[in-house]
Amino acid sequence: MFPRPIEKSGPGAKAAYQAFLPVALIMWLLPLLAIFLTSIRSAADINSGNVFGWPSEFAIVENYTAVFTQSAAAQYMINSVLITVPTVIISVALACLAGYALAIYRFRVALPLFFLFVAGNFIPFQILMVPVRDMSVQTGLYDTIAGQFLFHAAFQTGFCTLFMRNFIKALPFDLVESARIEGVAEWRIFWYVVLPLVRPAIAALAVLIFTFVWNDFFWANVLTQGESAKPITAGVRALNGQFVNNWHLVSAASLLAAIPPVVCFFLMQRHFIAGLTLGAVK
């Protein structure tokens, strides 16, 4: 193990290390802690310049309720859910199929097609912006929930296929081979042999795509206009304009926007990290 385990350097070093950890953590998360403290302050504190010291009173309930009563935050949150959930379902489903095809069958264009999905996943959004926006306007999908989740699902299919293909490729191929010898139909092999084995990959992709799409800001600006279809990320920006100098409310709204991915991450940490670090180990 590298670096050498701290226990081996004696009890003093270990105690020092353990004492330093929380200090390092507080320094690392200082911006976040500061904004959290702001979000539970009263307006009076903000106005009197007490933004760093201990809050004179705790206004946690008032501030967080104010975000919902004084703005369309609830609507934005619901929109975000309505955009992310279908995106996750569609893109993961499509990627299971495509990943299976690219991993199991040996055909000439398998690798070029795979690279097409990989490359598509890396391109800048701006190269898609004008045509996708124009297409959405033409088809009546502009400023709708569906217009956003259809695009996200298609775009995320690239990443999901990359992930699924590599995951399936790492499974023992004998399983498929022997099922074929038994005369099992191809779609049954997919459904009964491979799909149960890729459950961890599905879980990892589900949390990752949820987080990516929840945190999207660019497409929310390109594909929406009014409040009716805006997700919370774009909503928070709108609130920022509305709550000028009401930093306690802006902070509360930002933290609210961050909660779902954070909860998702802590609940499914193992899958989340396995997904992000795919390929980091040979």
Partner: peptide, 23 residues
């Protein structure tokens, strides 16, 4: 393989591959 690939391929082409060339 093509049956498995077609849904993803069509969807991905409409929203990603073709728009690149359009841009």
């Amino acid at each position: 393989p093509w049956i498995f690939l077609i849904p993803a391929l069509i969807f991905f082409s409409i929203y990603v591959v073709i728009p690149i060339f359009e841009s």
